[in-house]
Design a protein around this nucleic acid. Structure first.
Lengths: 194, 194
DNA sequence: TGTTTGCATACATACTGCCTGTATGTTACC
DNA sequence: GGTAACATACAGGCAGTATGTATGCAAACA
């Protein structure tokens, strides 16, 4: 058989990187960044620490790659749900938040993105990653709503980051309290209507 | 002189605990939890690691004590500003948020309470500490406003925790963007008016 | 065109230093 | 004399680095 005995360097590189990221994601999700060691990660990926430190500068860089991937997955989930966008800008924002909460159902993802990432990567680094993925759509949604005269005109970027914080906090609520949090978030968004 | 050669055990205990907490606070504030070692802390306190581990179960417990102290200080600052509370409930809430931002000016405090604490102590533990100190006043302020019919009636506790997240995020904004964040927060609070 | 030679990349193994937590010893209080 | 407060000594583990080995790749050569 030898399904893939011949492989290009780029293939090897991409594959082992993916294996390391996948193994790290699983362990970081379960035990958190601090309580997960690089020997564990390498073993789970079927590799050695040498491979890990060949592909990533340090443990933090590997974590950053995991965060990047998770963030992209969340953004993709929101984009995918954006197909059936309602015409009302506020309703569109609500639909987006719904998609965000759906993407955040996974407890491991919450731990990685909302608990550990701010402390491990720092706010500024995390904001950069956020700006590359999800923030833009939120800013656009808010700006559209303002341009349409549907909500109050306010500084857009701060408002988007504040709503991001709201969404994050709501996503962290216990499952049984989730509905109340979401209605509260919806009410705060609704309160901005002119 | 021998200002205090004779001391009771409780005095010794309280004093060394305070020294350890103070030294830990300074180092955690500057370098963060992960990058601060217990040898450093003990040395800065003029003690040894033995004393540290005699008074605290582990490094995390010492950090929790620091967080508790900082949280209490913030709550005290807000309480102190509460003397001249305006009659309008929403204005009172705004005044409270102002006092919160003032208490959060210190960068080290922001790092300890808003960056490291969630990751080190976990959300649930942190929520418990929060419930013991600052959250109650926020809940009361919101409930008063609802009872007075000034703002929409919503689930109080979730709303308070969401506003807590808003305040935290606004406090983390860069100093030059702080005004815009605060106006946005004020607008969101104002939007809840009936 | 096929082979070989040289090099860079991918990965493994070995080593050092540090830190955390614990166990044991010594001093101060009561 | 006994207990609490602290210091010293020890064991295990982890992060990061340095070094060694194998694999793919590209160009020179036949």
């Amino acid at each position: 058989m030898q399904t893939e005995k011949r492989r290009t360097q780029a293939d090897r590189r991409a594959e082992t990187r993916a294996q390391l990221i996948a193994a790290a994601r699983a362990l970081f999700a379960e035990r958190g960044f601090a309580d997960t060691g690089t020997p564990e990660i390498a073993a789970a990926a079927g590799l050695t620490r040498g491979a890990l430190y060949h592909h990533f500068a340090d443990k933090t860089a590997l974590f950053a790659a995991v965060v990047e991937q998770e963030h992209a997955a969340v953004a993709a989930g929101i984009e995918a749900a954006g197909g059936a966008m309602p015409s009302d800008p506020v309703a569109a924002l609500l639909a987006g938040s719904e998609a965000f909460f759906a993407a955040m159902r996974d407890a491991g993802r919450r731990r990685i993105l909302l608990i550990d990432a701010p402390a491990v990567l720092g706010r500024t680094t995390l904001d950069e990653i956020d700006a590359r993925h999800g923030l833009e759509t939120l800013v656009c949604g808010l700006r559209d709503a303002m341009d349409a005269g549907v909500i109050r005109r306010l500084p857009v970027l701060p408002l988007a980051q504040l709503f991001g914080a709201l969404f994050d906090r709501a996503a962290l609520a216990e499952p049984d309290q989730q509905p109340e949090f979401q209605t509260a978030v919806a009410a705060m968004l609704d309160g901005l209507r002119t």
